[in-house]
Design a protein around this nucleic acid. Sequence first.
RNA 1: GGCGCGGUACCCAAGUGGUAAGGGAGAGGUCUGCAAAACCUUUAUGCGUCGGUUCGAUUCCGACCCGCGCCUCCA
Length: 494
Amino acid sequence: MALRLYNTMSARVEEFRPIESNQVRMYACGPTVYDYGHIGNFRTFIAVDILQRFLKQSGYQVRYVMNITDVDDKIIRNSARAGVGVRQYTAKYEKAFLEDAAMLNIEQPVLVRATDHIPAMADFIGKLEQKGFAYRSEDGSYYFPIAKFPPYGKLSKKDFAGMEDGARVDLDEYEKDNARDFALWKAPKPGEAFWETPIGRGRPGWHIECSVMSMQQLGDTFDLHAGGEDLIFPHHENEIAQSESLTGKTFANFWFHARFLLVEGEKMSKSLGNFFTPRDLVLKGHKPSSIRYLLTSVPYRNQLNFTWDGLHQAATSVDRLRNFRLRLSTGHFPEGTNQTMAKLAEDAVAAMRAALDDDLNTAQAQGAIFEMVRAANAAIDAGEMRKADVPALLGAIERFDEIFAVLADDDPQKIKTILDWARAEGREKEISSEALALAGSAQLSDAEIEEKVAQMAAARKGRDFKLSDALRAELIAAGIIVENTKDGIRWRRK
RNA sequence: GGCGCGGUACCCAAGUGGUAAGGGAGAGGUCUGCAAAACCUUUAUGCGUCGGUUCGAUUCCGACCCGCGCCUCCA
């Protein structure tokens, strides 16, 4: 089986074949760090993370680059308003983005910042101008003449031929030859931040950074370019125009776009009051793993409706998987093997991989692992599990978690980190009792918990159920779930 | 208006020209000192509506209704 992916360029699902057989070079448009990232942003980043993880699991070496847009109009405006430099302004949100990504188990790509590449961008624009693919306006801005690039619109399937710009030309854009021409470089207005470069003073247009940094990191032509669906036009269309005009080569072979999510059935927006960041959700008492699971539970090209109910369902689903793993790893089974278990694990992994090969059908992949869990649990209940079967089943769970990354039992620590941040930011009022309870178990070390559990086991052995129950109540209050099984006491953090 | 996506049980959500994965929730049961976990049974003669093609359609085609996205530097 080979990975088949939807390619926005061809508008079809195609077999994904990288330029080099064993290596994938990919680029994703990252965040503009003018504010905290929201769950919509993270749906996209998680989708690309899933892709990237699956490629690695499939044996590819992956070079994955993501940009950080740390200069744009909003940043210039907000930083000026705040009376601080651009870099100082963006540093806070860049840090927050990295923390959020880590919290959601997004593996860190190679990160490149726009402001670290200003000279390269100026150079790129200069070369475009030499080739006739850029013109300078009177104020010192540079624009790309889309009329010079006939394929313009091929990604977004828009036909610009014969579409002469008529009446809808913005007053402050009178310097453009065509209303559709886009800015490569923007001359500074009075008081605005700017860079001094060979092509003049100013700042880069939005699209140029991605062309410059992706090609610098990955070459003139690379395998895959990703982003949210809104970037298809104009952002990616413009990147293609710039890059292909300069090199005469195909820019990226595959275009991967994640669909927008809805929140409670509506488009997420600040005015509707349904605008959430991962931090907001954690403060309300939701676990990072629940957020990640929900965000992966609907395939990336389908609309995902983010709801509170869905978040709870996600949490329960993750618990089911964690419980299963705990049951396997702490249970005592008779020596020997049961061939059907090895087959079960093998089939589950095969089904999961087949689902992901099919344009990253994450929902189906999750279904495959749950089928295995139910069958294996049933086998345990029926006394059919053997000691030697455990590694294969745990291995299947591991293969699953290499992609989905929701099983690590580290939510309490992560939540605690967010609570500390909220206090430092003066937002402790937003901390819910649920979040406090979840973070609570991070206070106790594993050793401390083990000690309590040992006392509890001793009490039960002496049939002192009063003491045993009291100890359990104590642990529950501290956010530890304790379960008595025939193989002894099993515990986990809530 | 142009281009595109979707409407599947109480909720979320896969999927297929031949008779509906999975998760959550509910109900009943098993196990258990209690609790939890887990398992079993159960919940769509039905997959937006109406037509058409077909031996047979939820799956293909057409129309219609509804929801959503891009076409405005919002992932």
